[in-house]
Amino acid sequence: MQNRQAMRTRKWNQWRDRLFSLLGLSVTTLGVVVLLALLVDVFMDGFARLDFDFLTHFPSRRPERAGIYAAWVGTLWIAVLTAAMAFPIGVAAATYLEEYARKNWLTDLIEINIANLAGVPSIIYGLLGLGIFVRWMDLERSILAGGMTLALLVLPIVILSSRESLRTVPSSIREASYALGASKWQTIRNQVLPAAMPGILTGAILAISRALGETAPLITIGALTYVAFLPKNPIGSEFPFFNLDGLMDPFSVLPIQIFNWVSRPQKGFAINAAAAIIVLLFITFVMNGIAVYLRHRSQKKVRW
């Protein structure tokens, strides 16, 4: 009698187990379904609109003549600027925290502070940029102000991922270097950083890719939605072959152009938005692809 009861409970438990397996699979696949729906929707709306003219025209009041020239050039500028600022500072901060920092209250404070910064809403960084870069430092609505704002935004992400990567370098590597008479910095520069570099780069590329998708902070600092010119070309034909005047020009970026088009009632602009989204997603996926490839390759190559 009791045995049968136990058998029944067991059957019931196994049945629930299998049911959950099914539920788990379908719920987890829900994400895939939504992703597919999103991609199909955007492609059906926008793919036909995508042509060479769309990439080389400035925005216009007439949707069929408008393009994303200023937007993608602005995105390119922002990418370079953000990387140029966030990467060295982020890696330096991570190196300090992993290799030098002693366990004391200041280190604890810096760590908890970085963890919090990584979770601060991006629009708050926009207010920071507006208050400090745009108004206080008087940089106006320039590319420089935008790049600095986004650099601060992704800095915590770069630091966190770089630390993660530095942590995977075994201490035997450092000890071997010290044993050969290398100093602390020589060890870090010649052994630790190169060993950790693929992981650091992976994190940095993901961070930049995140910056390129950001809209809110750049709207807050006053990036324009209608830009019918390009920033001054940084590459010149005369010595010294480059100039940075473009840094002070107003700008737009792809996400802001998309936002502007989505907000308009005419159907033509929604189509433009979809086409611009395809370009933005292409950039995002390519950067994520490179990051994944780097991580994959480094995992295969080095085994300590």
């Binding site: 998708g213 998309i258 989204i277 933005l280 994944v292």
Partner: peptide, 30 residues
């Protein structure tokens, strides 16, 4: 999940987190 299902599903879920939010806005509205 088996190893194979995991290696397929996990990266796809991560893509969801990488998509710019303005794209989600478009998706929600349109």
């Amino acid at each position: 999940a088996s190893r194979r299902v995991r290696t397929i599903l996990k990266p796809i879920l991560e893509i969801l987190a990488a998509i710019p939010t303005v794209v989600y806005g478009y998706f929600a509205l349109i």
